[in-house]
């Protein structure tokens, strides 16, 4: 097996006394979609921002290592990071309405990525931009180049963001909830577009979402995050078939499955709240909400293997969980 394109080993992110991400590890392989799932505030977005080197000034970032195509990102200075960003790794965001600069045309904002990383003429950059707008299925791309963001709908703007991210043919695309702000029909189009682009271009995608429907449709591998930790990682089919971590199980039970849910049945939910996690926090962060919690859940929690590529962070052994 070839080395993963992105390899995060025990990433920690803190904001003052609060710990946002604790020892998160994950790997994104070339040409695959890796979904990072979890509820709001679980640390999935800051993990993505940390990879891009885009964390706010008041954040602290530590990791044993964070490698992109074998290159260590930790300790890389801002200048070197900015060479990678937009060129070999690109990112799109949750807010298509505000993520484009209102003062510049679509063409100018797309062209500058090319001009920054590859140089060449403005004409060539605009040609490339038009080509990519067509690729993300925007009609009359030549006309769109001269338009301003306010003249486009949310779905179109997100397509522009995607096209812009692809300007320099990146190997890794990080998509932070790219469809959350969009209409359901547009969501489906954008997801299909991302999947098609992946096939065409061999893109690796790190897709952040809280929507398990999106996970089921797009992911090859999934990492579930809870309170700053990756609590379970598995190939997508395996995760849906054999969810191990009690939190993953809880998440899946919140999704109504057609045919299994009768009218009037209550939807699943997880009781309790996510705890406030400070640096000294010990034990399993899910234990107050967990049906299977035991006294030793307050101690050190091991990472257990269930199957190849499928591990989870829990005190309880696989055999005991399968029957639970």
């Amino acid at each position: 097996m070839t080395a993963p394109l992105l390899e995060i080993d025990r990433l920690d992110i803190g904001f003052g006394p609060l710990s946002a991400v604790r020892g998160a590890s994950l790997q994104v392989r070339r040409g695959e979609t890796h979904c990072l799932v979890g509820e709001s505030g679980c640390g999935k977005s800051v993990t993505a921002l940390a990879v891009m080197g885009l964390l706010a000034r008041n954040a602290t970032r530590n990791a044993v290592s964070m490698r992109f195509d074998g290159q260590e990102l930790m300790g890389l200075d801002e200048k070197a990071m900015s060479r990678l960003r937009g060129d070999r790794m690109a990112m799109i965001f949750q807010e298509p309405m505000t993520s484009l600069n209102p003062a510049y045309t679509v063409g100018s904002q797309m062209a500058e990525v090319m001009l920054r990383h590859r140089g060449g003429t403005r004409r060539a950059a605009l040609d490339r931009a038009a080509e990519l707008l067509a690729k993300v299925r925007i009609t009359s791309p030549g006309m769109r180049l001269g338009q301003y963001p306010h003249q486009l709908s949310g779905g179109l703007r997100q397509r522009v963001m995607i096209a812009m991210a692809l300007m320099c043919s990146p190997e890794l695309l990080i998509a932070d909830e790219p469809t959350t702000a969009l209409d359901v029909t547009v969501q489906a189009q954008i997801l299909r577009l991302l999947a098609d682009l992946q096939k065409d271009l061999g893109l690796a995608i790190l897709l952040i979402t809280h929507d398990l429907g999106v996970v089921a449709r797009t992911a090859h591998h999934v990492s579930v995050m809870y309170a700053g930790q990756v609590v379970e990682t598995a190939p997508v089919a395996d995760l849906f078939a054999n969810p191990m971590h009690p939190y993953t199980r809880g998440l899946l039970s919140c999704v109504p499955v057609p045919g299994k849910v009768r009218p009037g049945d209550p939807l699943g939910s997880i009781p309790g709240m996510v705890p406030r996690v400070e640096h000294a926090f010990a034990g399993c962060a899910f234990r107050q909400r967990c049906d299977l919690a035991r006294p030793d859940c307050a101690g050190t929690i091991p990472r257990r293997d269930f199957a190849p590529g499928h591990d989870y962070l829990c005190q309880i052994e696989p055999a005991a969980l399968v029957t639970a």
């Binding site: 900015s82 965001f93 600069n101 500058e112 990525v113």
Partner: peptide, 17 residues
């Protein structure tokens, strides 16, 4: 603090730009 500045940074633009 605007989102489009985050985008500009994600594009790897120089601080000057």
């Amino acid at each position: 603090a605007a989102d489009y500045i985050r985008t500009a940074r994600a594009k790897g633009l120089s601080r000057m730009s």
